[in-house]
Structures are given as C-alpha cells and as structure tokens.
Design a protein around this nucleic acid. Structure first.
Lengths: 245, 245
DNA sequence: CTTATAATACTTGTATACAAGTATCCTTGT
DNA sequence: ACAAGGATACTTGTATACAAGTATTATAAG
C-alpha cells in the first residue's frame, strides 16, 4: 500500500524514546500532515508490520494518539480523526486559556531567571534560522512556550500542556518546514513576537503580554497554521481534496 | 503485605471495562484515599500478582495513572505521588477555567435541551440521596458537570475534562461516602447549588452562574474535599500520620 | 575494616501466543 | 436469483516469554 519509507518526525528528538513513542510521533505527523487521510482505519497488526515492531508498542502509540483525540479507538480498528479546522481553533482556545492563566501567575512572581532562559532559547531560535533548520526552530519554539508554562509550577496546567504539546509540535514543525523555504522573513517577525513576549514578562505588563500573545497566535498559528498548513496538508498528501463540511 | 481484599471503586461502574481500566480505577481510589501512601513504589510484577492479572493491563493502568499525575513512571518502579493539597487546589483552578469557558459558550447557545438533561440528572441525585446511595450520588454529580461540558461540543475542553474526570470522580466519591452518614443535610445544599446552576444556564445569567459555580466549589470541593476528605484520607488509611511539609 | 568488583535479583520494553468476540464472505437451500 | 446461516479471517484484550539494563548485595582483595 502506502510505502512511505521516509519518516516525517525528526529522528534526533527520539533518540532515547521507546518504540511506542517513536511510532506515536511518526503516526501523529503522518495523520496531522494528511499523509494518512482522515477516516482511515488503522489496524494494530498492519501497523506492527509497517513499523516492523510488535503489537505492544503499537497499542501504546494508539492509546497516546487516542488521548490526543486524533484517532478514535473503536471496536474494530482505530479510525483516524485527523485535525479539522474546528479542532485547530479549539487548540487555539486552550492555548489562550492556559497562557493567560499562566501570565496571571507570572506577574506575581520573580521572573528574572525565566526571562534569562527564554532569552537563551530565543538565541537558539536565531541560530536555527541562520542555518535554515526549520525543525530545530520549531522545537525551540515549542520549548519556549513550555518553559513559560513550567515556570509557574502548576502541575495541572502542565498536564494540559503535555496533552496539547505533541499536536502543537507537529503543527509547528509542519508549518515551519513549509515557510522556511519561501517566506523567510516571517521568521524574523516570529522572533520579534517572542521578544515582545519576553519584554511583557519582564515588565509584567498585562497589556503587552496579551498583545504579544495574540500576535504570536495570529502570526504563527492562524495565518501560518490554519491557512498555509491547512492547504499544505492537502497538497502534500494528494493533489486535491474536496471537503466542505 | 497489605491484604486489602475489598475494592474501593464501585464495581457496577466497570462492568464492561477492561482489566486495565479496572486496575486503574481501583489503584486510583487507593492512592487518592491514602490507602496506598504517597511515596510508595509500585512494581508491575507485584501489582500483577496482587490483582491476579498479567503485566499488560497493569502497564496500561500505570500509564493512565501517570497521565493523571498521581504516579510518576521512573526507571525503577512507579512512585506514587498522591494528591497534595496544592494539587487539589490546582484541580480547582482547572475546573474554574473550564467551566467559565464553557459558560461563555453556553450563553450563546440554545440550552433548553441541556437544562432538561441536567434536571433529569438532578432528579437522579435526589433519589440517590433518598436511598442513601453515596456512590450513585457522586457519579451523578460528576455526570452533571460532564453533561454541561459536553454540551458545547468542544473536543479539547472535553479532553481536559477527560483527564481531570477520574480524579474528580474519586474525590467526590470519597467525599460523599463520608458525608452521607453524618452530614446529611449537606446534600440538600449541594442539590440546591446544582439547581442554581441550572437556573443560571437557563437565564444565561453570568453573575448567577459564577455565584453557583463558586458555591459549588466552596461547598463540595473546598469545604468537603480539601478539609474533610483530606483528614479522612489519613484517618481511613491508618490511625495517625505525621506530615508537615 | 574498607573498597572494588562480580554475581544476582530485580526492573522495563518488546515480542509472541492465545482466547474470545465480531464482521465478512461464501455456501447452501429455497 | 435471493435470503439465511455458517465458516473464515479478521479484530481486541490478556498472558507469557525473552532481552537488555540497573541497583543491590555479597564476596574477595588490599
């Protein structure tokens, strides 16, 4: 069938990961990128054969993917849900919810060390751009936001993030890979948004924070992901799709 | 060792559940109730022997519990984190976050059918009280809130709820079991709070909603759970505990 | 008596085997 | 030709087996 021999997920990231995690990451990328179409029914045995592992890691991966709501575990087979446009907006909702909550905590905290960490990550992102490393850039971008969330030491907010993160990571990875080729100057704007984010944290300026948050979303998420990526998913996957619901 | 032969989790609820789910539910109850102390190291093999199942369902259960943050999967063994008072407050935070978000959506929606469903659940709760069925009451209470969350059709809010729900369920179960014996009149107050909740939804009254939400939390959650339950956990588990950090 | 090294008894992760259940398809009877 | 029922080829869930790695313990040497 689909002999997709090359892996979509950056292999360096899962050097010490288990087979289950590797499969989960790769399947996630294929599903979100559209390589595996929505509606496809995944069989444990078939996946095990495809990935050349046993059913145990496959089951583990499917459980993970199901908890992220990109597949549904039914009686017979796991059916791929993919990401509808609606879901991407929902992710937007959740990020907004989390990050505004986090910021409310941040303004009551000492944030010197945090802003140092963030600055470091930002430097890394700049280097990644310099060397046209979209994956590295995306991963650092994710890390940037995770670092912020971690800083308030709220285990349940972190839980929510942990659930969201893999999908976010996929979206950003795909988005950045696309844009690094042509829309190069986008990246400097993304960097600038992150700088504003840091400034907002340092000055504990609620207004500035919200502004940068929205800039960040509007830029990276909506404009980038929803539109470009959404198209690209279809482009990459096949030629054209008709999908009007 | 600990020959806890009786099960804490209501067995009727997991009639069609898999062994893994059963183990997860039971372990969750034991951990949250304090029967299994925080810090305990759980071994897959030992658990498999205790529950008379193989390691496969145990692994599944541990994965679930880890995703709920009540255990940590480390190199050697799964260490029990339990629920600190801080964590219970964090759960409070998340519920507040979710339910206020949900309400904002609700006021833009048709809620006639929802309030009918909620009324039905409320009737069930009253019956449960009448027959002194704490478990049934607790389960319906959880269902009440889940129904509200489901009504806005936001899959990611539902995801967050799905993560939170098992722990919430445990907390409410334990709390209700304790209070149904003595603090009987508490239940009528809980019922009243839920009625206010429904009224708020019907009238789409933001103020009333927030009030009932806080009442609900303050009553069931904080006063009930954090104080009573917290003590009871310790009482139930052993005689006395010294724990001052 | 202390320290270093090796053996042992754990641990997890993966593979494989088996049982029970369900959909599909083919056969058979009308 | 068509409907009904049974065989077959799937599916999941669970059990067991195996491999690789880690901590602990015991033993032996200094």
């Amino acid at each position: 069938m689909t002999e997709t021999k090359e892996f979509l997920y950056p292999e360096k990231s899962l050097s010490k990961a288990s087979a289950g995690d590797r499969v989960a990451c790769e399947l996630r990328m294929r599903i979100i990128s559209g390589v595996i179409e929505s509606g496809t029914i995944l069989s444990e045995n078939k996946l095990a054969a495809d990935f050349a592992v046993s059913r145990s890691p496959i089951r583990e991966a499917l459980k993970i993917l199901a908890s992220e709501n990109i597949i549904r575990l039914e009686r017979m087979g796991a059916v791929v849900s993919g990401l509808t446009e609606k879901e991407i907006h929902e992710i937007y909702d959740v990020r907004l919810l989390i990050e505004t909550f986090v910021f409310e905590r941040l303004i009551k905290m000492e944030t010197k060390q945090l802003s140092r960490e963030l600055s470091k990550i930002l430097e890394m992102m700049k280097v990644a751009i310099k060397y046209r490393d979209a994956d590295e850039f995306a991963l650092q971008d994710v890390l940037f936001h995770e670092t912020i969330i971690r800083s308030i030491n709220h285990s349940h907010m972190l839980m929510i993030w942990d659930n969201l993160k893999p999908v976010m990571e996929c979206l950003i990875l795909l988005s950045m890979r696309l844009r690094i080729k042509e829309e190069y100057e986008d990246f400097t704007r993304v960097i600038r948004n992150h700088e504003i984010y840091i400034e907002a944290i340092e000055s504990k300026d609620r207004e500035l924070m919200l502004e940068s948050l929205h800039l960040n979303f509007d830029d990276v998420q909506v404009q980038g992901t929803v539109d470009d990526l959404w198209m690209s998913q279809q482009m990459l996957a096949k030629g054209a799709v008709q999908e009007n619901d």
